[in-house]
């Protein structure tokens, strides 16, 4: 009887371990796709020549997994001819001269102060959550069931002095 109980306990432990392994890699996978999408967005947005520097700077607010994924991409890829630099956000000063900023869902409350800071400075604002493109970001990830989609605000992208490709509008959920 006791042996059976112990065995059950072990089986339960194994099941819990497998479940945990499953969720952690699922999370990593989502961040991996988000990083791929963000890199892909850079191919569909045109930054004016004046804003191009030595590096393409991506600032990430509140998502360390995404930073790791973007850094993997930065090792082999370039945007235009610029190498990619990924910056972990510490203060609003980070945003000076950055080309793209990603705002994680937990930091969505920062959106309005972020927008005042980067207003018209050729920065693409990518937020993460529903209806955020209508609130001022250029692109916002939305999770639709198990599918990753994104909202696009062409107006907000233009307001930042950037041009978006027609593919971006065709494939995203256009909010204006």
């Amino acid at each position: 009887m006791r042996g059976k109980f112990l065995a059950m306990k072990r089986l339960l432990f194994l099941i819990v371990v497998f479940c945990l392994m499953g969720t952690s890699s699922l999370f990593a996978q989502k961040e991996r796709f988000k990083a791929l999408f963000i890199f892909n967005f850079t191919k569909n947005i045109e930054w004016p020549a004046a804003s191009r520097g030595n590096q393409f700077v991506i600032v990430v607010i509140g998502n360390s997994e995404l930073i790791a994924e973007l850094e993997t991409i930065a090792q082999t890829q370039r945007v235009g001819n610029m190498p990619i630099k990924v910056v972990d956000y510490t203060s609003l000063d980070n945003l000076n001269g950055c080309h793209l900023v990603y705002l994680s869902p937990s930091k969505s409350g920062m959106l309005s102060s972020l927008l005042t800071n980067v207003n018209g400075k050729h920065t693409l604002v990518v937020s993460d959550g529903k209806n955020l493109a209508a609130k001022g970001s250029g692109i916002s990830f939305v999770q639709d069931g198990d599918k990753l989609k994104f909202e696009v605000s062409r107006k907000n992208i233009e307001k930042q002095g950037l041009k978006s490709s027609s593919a971006l509008a065709n494939l995203g959920i256009v909010v204006d």
Binding site: L26, F37, F41, N44, L171
Partner: peptide, 15 residues
């Protein structure tokens, strides 16, 4: 391309 990436992401169903 963005279109192909979406195809792949959705075919995988992110799961």
């Amino acid at each position: 391309s963005l279109e192909d990436l979406m195809t792949v992401a959705n075919r995988f169903g992110m799961s």
